[in-house]
Design a protein around this nucleic acid. Structure first.
Length: 539
DNA sequence: CTAGGGTTAG
């Protein structure tokens, strides 16, 4: 297969799709000039004319919104036996990239007489834009091996590739960002705004806001794009005031930067009210909310349980075409459910033309949390009847519904069906849910036994579930076991475990033990005399 | 040919 040549006459790249029925495509083909017919007997001069004509026709297809029709030009070239020059080959390559016909683009690339830096960059960009990160990085590799030196375009795409994928695709992206940064310096590439922004974003996406800020400060003029990255970075680390400072200094605001603020604010209950303010504010400046705006502001309403504001947002959403969107519907269902407005959630749910696993999960979880676990489990069944595959969050919702209803046997059944029927390996969260289920029902011994048979090391969530059940049932001995396991595990969870344990002791009237515990915690440095401070910045 | 934003749990 590796050495397979292009067919003399190609099958349509889009034979599987319906593009020929797209009226835009056909009308486009009428308006575009047809290249001259190639004739073997034409003079050299005519050949040049034909090439020029082909080249400009291809360019028009590339520039159009409907590049698909351009493939017919390639077919005609092949049929005529004409050997296209490099210019035309590159244009065909760009055309195929734009169409998403990446295998054809690759073949055009491989057949080029010489591969220039820009040809590499086209391949890197095209593959990246169609989500093929591995392929894209493969061309980076080939570029480096060819001895050609990458330029600013290449570097910004490498950074984008490393941030647009999950860590297992590129090894250690956290370090990769640093390495690329070093290579940029080494290759003597003078970064422009775009490359600076890509660097800022790469540091931001890896949680290194300190480095991001350093690069950000190196830019003489901060544009709205890099400010947005910086804002998202600060927001994701909880540095709200730093984000606000950048936002206030951003002169030419656009919808994306507004959305970044709304999204950042919506993450915590303390700031979510500001998310609503920005949402109102941006509309005063005539920015119409788009799909991201709606998603974030609906999220803010969920956090605040502000269903009345949510209703207004919904009515604005209804005026757009976005109300049909599954993500929007799911966000609304979730919002109403989180606000305790389960009948509103159900109404949105019923009117949705299309539902996905997110929609079902939100609804199931909503019923579970609003004191109707039976309905939750009923929905869980109906979802499976509708052939929607539950995911691991759905199982958490179903299991916690069982926990709230005290349906221990049912919980076990669902837990077992997870692996048996869906080949999904339970995660620690599911084990924690089961411990909660058993513990809540008062079977603390059984919960402990369950923990002991968990494959792998139980984390502090699992022990915390046992601890809170112990507290619920005032089982001091079990609370001690659970809290001690947490003390051994995660420093961040110690204060919480301490509070829970000392409450259990207090509830059982064991005041001596409470003060003993307090002294012991101080000695071990888990409890400080003054308040806690575990807020730290990176770098 | 290069840069920024969006749904589900605890």
């Amino acid at each position: 297969m590796k050495n397979a040549k292009l067919p003399r006459t190609r099958p349509s790249v889009f034979s599987s799709t319906n593009n020929h029925s797209n009226p835009l495509v056909s009308s486009n083909q009428i308006f575009l000039p047809k290249p001259l017919e190639y004739n073997e007997s034409l003079s050299y001069r005519s050949t040049v004319t034909w090439s020029t004509s082909l080249s400009s026709t291809l360019q028009q297809y590339i520039n159009s919104d409907t590049p698909f029709g351009g493939q017919s030009i390639h077919t005609r070239i092949i049929k005529s036996g004409f050997i296209p020059n490099t210019n035309i080959s590159i244009k065909l390559l760009i055309l195929y990239l734009k169409c998403g016909a990446l295998n054809y683009a690759r073949q055009m690339f491989d057949e080029l007489p010489q591969r220039t830096l820009s040809a590499y960059n086209y391949m890197i960009s095209g593959n990246l834009r169609h989500g093929l990160v591995q392929e894209s990085l493969g061309f980076v590799r080939r570029l480096v091996l060819s001895g050609e030196r990458p330029d600013g375009y290449t570097f910004s795409m490498i950074l984008k590739a490393s941030t647009s994928c999950r860590s297992n695709v590129v090894l250690l992206p956290r370090r990769l960002g640093r390495m690329v940064h070093a290579q940029i310096v080494k290759c003597d590439v003078e970064p422009d705004d775009v490359l600076y922004t890509a660097l800022v974003d790469s540091y931001v996406k890896n949680g290194m806001v300190g480095y991001a800020r350093t690069v950000f400060d190196m830019m003489l003029e901060k544009n709205v794009v890099c400010s947005t990255s910086m804002i998202s970075g600060y927001m994701s680390q909880g540095f709200v005031e730093d984000a606000e400072e950048i936002f206030s200094k951003t002169m030419e605001k656009d919808i994306v930067v507004y959305n970044a603020m709304i999204e950042g604010y919506s993450k915590s209950i303390e700031t979510a009210k500001k998310a609503l303010e920005v949402y109102v504010d941006m509309q005063r400046f005539n920015f119409l909310p788009n799909i991201s705006t709606f998603a974030s502001v609906i999220g803010a309403c969920s956090v605040l349980a502000e269903f009345e504001f949510g209703q207004q947002v919904q009515s604005q959403l209804m005026k757009t075409e976005l109300f049909k969107n599954v993500k929007m519907g799911s966000a609304l269902v979730d919002m109403y459910a989180k606000c305790g407005r389960i009948e509103d959630a159900q109404r949105v749910f019923d009117h949705m033309p299309e539902k996905n696993v997110f929609t079902w999960t939100s609804m199931i979880d909503g019923y579970g949390k609003n004191g109707n676990p039976d309905e939750a489990l009923e929905l869980f069944l109906r979802m499976q009847e509708c052939h929607v595959q539950p995911n691991y969050v759905t199982f958490l919702g179903a299991l916690s519904a069982c926990g709230h209803a005290g349906l221990v046997a049912k919980g076990h059944e669902i837990f077992e069906s997870m692996e048996r029927d869906y080949s999904m390996k339970p995660k620690m969260e599911h084990y924690a849910c089961m411990v909660d289920l058993l513990g809540r029902a008062g079977s603390l011994e059984q919960a402990l036994k369950f923990i002991q048979q968990i494959p792998g090391k139980p984390n502090s969530d699992v022990w915390a579930a046992l601890l809170s059940s112990s507290r619920l049932h005032e089982d001091v001995e079990m609370a001690n076991i659970a809290a001690n396991e947490i003390f051994k595990l995660n420093a961040n969870d110690r204060p919480g475990a301490y509070v829970s344990l000392s409450n259990t002791l207090a509830a059982a009237g064991k005041w001596n033990n409470v003060s003993e515990l307090r002294e012991g915690m101080k000695l071990r440095g888990i409890l400080k005399d003054t308040g806690y401070s575990w807020v730290g910045r990176d770098s």
